[in-house]
Simulated assay, not measured.
Amino acid sequence: MHFEKYLLALSAIAICASASRFDREWNSWKSKYGKKYVSPSKELYRRKAWEATWEKVQKHNQLADQGLTSYRMAMNHFADLTTEERNSKNCLLSKGTSQTPKINSYSHAQSSTIPDEVDWRKSNCMSPPRDQGDFCGSCWAFATVGVIESRYCIKTNKLLKLSEQQLVDCDEHDDGCCGGLPVQALDYVAQNGVMMRKDYEYSEKKATCEYEPEKAIMLNVTKYYMLPSEENMAAAVAFEGPLTVGIGVTEDFMLYNGGIFEGSCAEEPNHAIVIVGYGTEPAEDEDEEDTDYWIIKNSWGEKWGEKGFGRMKRNIDQCQISNMVATIDFTV
């Protein structure tokens, strides 16, 4: 009987210690990401979602430690969302409901001389990853601006900070914080130009259009186009610069923390990112194959992934990465 009481006491101590540790980690996480909740009941709901995420992340990273997966997860700023909430996020318009301008697909002349690796981050023509925020599905605008900024800099050696908010407010073919398509936004920019960010700051919500033509950077666009395959994508990245792409992401991608992403994907593209390079990671064992990857730039801030960037498997059309590729060319 005394032994049973002893075991019960030990169990109670263990439960209290575990709860105390979770309390510390929860409070530390809230402080790190500036999380505040409107009521105790709301916080309890988010706390339960956070604990479920904690279990998922721990299990996944144990697999990574064993070499059974090529990427790691983190308790980032999405950790207090439920699985359903993370998997339902969408900031792209459906192809079937969009008003995509009629443009041609463009294929590069195939060449065996493209570099083995490309990383435009090393060119000084890459602005830091920005954060679209939790309440505005504007990934399409950030991907569009990211590509234009880099390609303009590659041609002029001048890195401008351009306005995503102008696209959110003024591009009538897209739907502001409810989603859009980069190829439609490229069409808008070709017609109207784009203002500097300092003149039209991001507000994380759609508002009345305040476009001022006299303050816009006008681009002498020669073409904006879509690319049909990963082989063409690699040639375009190597010789011309970054691309916008749509990918189908789930919570696995949202919790990504580093490595080469190989997690689950949504059935169709729901998020826009920028491809800024590519490379190949050598296999550790002779019997294994090397892993080709894309280098991507996201719009969830530097707290996501590899300081706002990430890597995804290449040449397997992961997450339908070759389905909605677009970019723009212009003269200066």
Rank of each mutant, 00 (worst) to 15 (best):
D199L: 02
R314A: 12
T113L: 11
F253I: 10
L255G: 03
L255F: 14
K42W: 00
D131H: 12
L68A: 06
G180S: 02
R72D: 04
E231Y: 10
I316L: 11
M1I: 09
G146W: 11
D285C: 02
D252V: 08
N27Q: 15
V237L: 14
S18F: 15
A141G: 13
K95D: 13
D65V: 02
G67K: 07
F253K: 11
R21G: 02
L8C: 10
L227F: 05
S28H: 00
I15Q: 04
F3Q: 13
E251V: 05
G133T: 02
L162V: 03
C136R: 10
V57W: 01
G279T: 08
R314N: 05
N315M: 14
G146K: 06
W29M: 07
T144F: 03
Y106M: 12
I275Y: 07
R46F: 01
D329V: 02
Q62P: 00
V38E: 00
C265K: 10
N87P: 06
S107I: 11
E302D: 08
P101I: 12
T280V: 15
E51Y: 15
V332F: 14
V325W: 06
F135A: 08
F135M: 10
K122I: 03
S107A: 14
N124I: 01
R86A: 12
E117K: 14
F261N: 05
V274K: 09
I114L: 12
I114D: 15
P129I: 12
L255K: 01
T280L: 04
S105E: 12
I217F: 07
A326H: 03
T208P: 00
L81I: 00
P182Q: 04
G176C: 06
M195L: 02
G305F: 03
S150D: 06
S163W: 04
Y6V: 04
A9R: 10
A190S: 12
E164S: 11
I114G: 02
K307M: 02
S28T: 09
W300Y: 11
M195N: 03
S20M: 11
M126W: 04
W29F: 11
L93A: 03
I296D: 00
I15C: 09
Y152V: 05
K48G: 01
D131T: 05
C125R: 02
F22N: 13
L93Y: 06
V276W: 01
Y256G: 09
A190K: 14
A49M: 07
S322F: 05
S98V: 06
S123W: 04
C265Q: 09
Q191K: 15
S20F: 14
G179C: 08
D23T: 15
R72H: 08
S11H: 09
Y211V: 04
R86C: 15
Y211Q: 11
W50E: 11
E214D: 12
L160N: 03
E204T: 13
C125W: 05
A17D: 12
K155V: 00
